[in-house]
């Protein structure tokens, strides 16, 4: 068999490039993975001198699981409340001539336009005034400041992407506005609602600044737990937390890729 030297050269470059990409993506992650099983690892050794699941056992037996549960609970609450607000608002913004529509959309974006820390710090003052500091409802509310932005924009785009003729056809066949919404617009928006929920859920699960400012010291979600762990220079615990935190994110992103349709994105410009 003859080997074409040109083709071999190209293949080598390709493989080298692929290796570089894999290194850039998985390099930092592999460091996390190694740290999570390193029981003893001192300079100048390239790899741990002693590996084991000691820290995994410690982490899984600690408050981490409680933080994980709490994070899921808060993220679920944030997602449901956000949907409850944004599905009707998104529909109204997509279908009706709402006065000052662009101003309303900008208002939702406003908290994102400023640095997060002062926004959350101000919100913290307000929430403490209403006795919501260091409580779960307080953390849910602060998460919603951010989640509403994604959700309103996505939901408006989702409803815009549903041809208005579908609803007109339903109305023409005798359905009322509400019936039309429930039987046509809402079922057709399900993939968009799922996509929006996943984004909001992930956002809430990973949210750190607001949770730390409002929730501490009683409401400790996983990112805050990780922060506390790394403050104590327990790199093993921080690594395990980070790895655990990545799992829901990865699962949800795979789902997101399935549900987030290109036509929603194309509608963003038309809102």
């Amino acid at each position: 068999m003859k080997v074409n030297p040109g083709a071999m050269g190209r293949a080598t470059v390709k493989i080298a490039f692929l290796a570089l990409v894999l290194f850039v993506i998985f390099g930092p992650l592999s460091s996390l993975a190694i740290w999570s099983v390193a029981e003893k690892w001192y300079w100048p050794y390239a790899l741990p001198q002693q590996v084991g699941l000691f820290y995994w056992g410690r982490v899984l037996g600690s408050d981490l699981m409680r933080s994980l549960q709490l994070g899921f609970f808060i993220a679920t609450a944030v997602t449901m409340l956000t949907l409850l607000c944004t599905v009707p608002v998104g529909y109204a913004l997509a279908r009706f001539d709402v006065l000052f529509k662009s101003v309303i959309m900008m208002l939702f974006l406003l908290p994102q336009a400023f640095p997060q820390l002062p926004v959350f710090a101000n919100a913290a003052v307000l929430l403490y005034k209403f006795d919501l500091g260091a409580t779960i409802p307080g953390v849910v509310l602060i998460h919603m400041v951010g989640s509403l932005v994604y959700a309103v924009w996505i939901m408006t785009a989702v409803f815009k992407s549903i041809p208005v003729e579908m609803e007109e056809a339903a109305i023409n066949l005798g359905a009322s506005r509400i019936k039309t919404f429930l039987t046509i617009a809402l079922p057709l928006a399900v993939p968009g609602i799922v996509a929006s929920s996943l984004l909001v859920f992930l956002y809430s699960l990973d949210e750190f600044t607001g949770t730390l400012l409002i929730g501490a010291p009683f409401v400790v979600t996983l990112p805050v737990f990780m922060y506390n762990a790394s403050m104590g220079y327990e790199l093993q615990v921080a690594s395990i937390t980070a790895l655990l935190l990545m799992i829901p994110g990865m699962v949800l992103l795979v789902l997101l890729e399935r549900y987030l349709k290109a036509e929603y994105l194309s509608m963003f410009g038309r809102i």
Partner: peptide, 16 residues
Amino acid sequence: SHRRNTAMVFQEYALF
């Protein structure tokens, strides 16, 4: 519209 008893066929059909 829903009480007019007119039925419309749309250009793009608008099937659900």
